[in-house]
Design a protein around this nucleic acid. Structure first.
Lengths: 332, 332
DNA sequence: TTGAAAGCGATACCAG
DNA sequence: CTGGTATCGCTTTCAA
């Protein structure tokens, strides 16, 4: 037998000797209740530990106040920061955050259905990789979706992200200014649009500067992935300037370079992306691009509001310029 | 005017030419529906994009399937990992995770009320600091609460954590075995029970080994806090063995020591707590204690189940022994 | 196996 | 200002 868990407004009303409507009004901000009635109600409510349920209201309005936040890899400090800031902002706006960790597109289908059942008001995807199929699964749920760093757009699916191509271009310009001759790129997963865009911008920037095509290695947004890629780049040819798809890779790259006897920045200059806390730690002192998370979050929230208002507005994409912080890893 | 967002079972029933009850039964696992009826219903549901709402069920059962996860400081990789693993396990169990970021005990009061309104089934607090008052606020909401690394217990409030005193003791034993003479402790916030317990265990271990009282510095679980503490310890006296309240401090400590010209482990040995990814990075190679997050999570979930079953059972506390991983920062 | 009908706990409109 | 009542979308008896 399950004991009843929460007192209802009816019980409060009975105890206070008023109608249930009076109780409801007492807990409704703008409603008209006499001070006498309110006091009786509050006293009764307090002694019973009454908290008006939000559930009936959700049923009436079809708005839950819940926003789903789909994430993979919180071990990347960048995403941890996104979650933190996004959750804080949503809470300020009176929303609650449903955190949905996901390890692959595959699990996303099941998740989308579940979220629809909870009547979430919007979905924010902070996944490094989001396929078009997965995006469409989300889109089909009739819930506004905003995706971080993924160019997919569709009906009710928008996207915000760092201007990765611009970052790549600036990385090339900086390395050129520091006089490097042999550029290389340490990539993230092949299906990560962010990594691809950064490489494209990097290529364009190098070309504009009259430098050769970068050699490319790597395939994961991880420390170990960066280390392996760097080792490979070192053994297979000349390198004196490396742009890494993110900071995590860059840290692995730096450590591997040092193990191989290269000095930074004297022999090789390294640039990362995300400007995570570790970039400024003494052992690394890594030049990196800050994606400006607060701006990304604001853009995402504004986009959600717009989609919710217009109902089924077409997808948009918004890019935020990254901000370069130069540190020891690229100094002359 | 807000357009209707979701189709209802009544609309599906109308389209399929059956009763609304039939629709409900079709989506209820064990119910008895003829194949013919089910097919009609499924076809209609599909064409309308129908997803049965969970909200009415919550209203009927007073169980939302929502578990709140209260966190501060996701920038600490340890907590990011806790959130990740906990969320994954809860989802396997069919629960959804409500993520509640909080920056102080003060905001917790408001949060507790809100969570009660959503009828969350349980609250997990992964806060470094949780005061007794705050715990009682949570407890008053009649919702089972499990707290990480905080010794508070009360009715419906349990606690799981690493056996910090044991870890402290082992840290002392290890440093003693490595022949240090001048121990020190880099502390977390003064009101963090985890930090205090680690120090207590460390003190006891040192005493048992015949070593002097440790000097103590520091006051935050941060990289910068660790760096400042280390600088202070270096300038104010002799040090050759430092136990840090967590990894983040330890990394700052190591970098500050190096800036001060000390070699690690030759001049000073350093031990951290949490065994975060950065501990094994090349630049640090930090000896650290793994809190065994999966075990902590299992213990927390089991405790929640027990509390939910017994209804208002007394609070318990469960300790998981930490696992030491020795790396270069303490080798001979 | 089926359909009709009674709730679940709030909000909001209604007349008094 | 107050109390009565319809309502939201389901699940669950209860009869047929």
């Amino acid at each position: 037998m399950v004991s009843k868990r929460y007192p209802t407004s009816i019980e409060v009303a009975r105890l206070a000797g008023v109608s249930q409507s009076a109780v409801s009004r007492t807990f409704t901000p703008g409603a008209s209740v006499s001070a006498r009635t309110r006091d009786k109600v509050l006293a009764a409510a307090d002694s019973l530990g009454f908290r008006p349920s939000l559930i009936p209201k959700i049923m009436l309005t079809d708005r839950s106040g819940l926003v789903a936040l789909v994430v993979g890899g919180l071990e990347n400090a960048f995403y941890a920061r996104v979650v933190q800031i996004l959750a804080a902002r949503l809470r300020e706006a009176g929303n609650q955050v449903l955190l949905v960790p996901v390890d692959s597109d595959y699990t996303l289908d099941a998740v989308a259905a579940r979220l629809a059942q909870y009547r979430v008001d919007a979905i924010v995807s902070a996944l490094a990789v989001l396929s078009r199929d997965a995006a469409e699964t989300l889109s089909a749920s009739r819930i506004p979706v905003v995706s971080f760093n993924t160019p997919v757009t569709a009906a009710r699916v928008g996207s915000v992200g760092s201007d990765n191509a611009l970052g790549g271009w600036q990385a090339a310009a900086l390395l050129h200014a520091r006089g490097i001759r042999h550029p290389a790129f340490v990539a993230g997963p092949a299906d990560s649009p962010a990594s691809t865009e950064r490489l494209t911008g990097f290529r364009d920037g190098l070309r504009a500067a009259g430098l050769p095509e970068p050699r490319v290695a790597g395939s994961a947004y991880t420390y170990d992935g960066g280390a392996e890629a760097a080792t490979q780049l070192c053994t297979e040819g000349a390198v004196d300037g490396i742009f890494c798809a993110n900071d995590l890779c860059a840290l692995g790259t730096i450590d591997a370079l040092r193990r191989a006897g290269r000095r930074i920045p004297d022999d090789v200059r390294v640039i990362g992306y995300d400007d995570t806390p570790a970039a400024s730690w003494g052992g690394y002192d890594l030049t990196s691009f800050d994606q400006d998370v607060p701006a990304l979050v604001e853009a995402a929230l504004a986009m959600i509001d717009r989609m919710a208002a217009e109902d089924a507005g077409a997808g948009e994409r918004e890019l935020i310029p990254p901000r370069l912080t130069e540190r020891g890893s690229t100094r002359s």
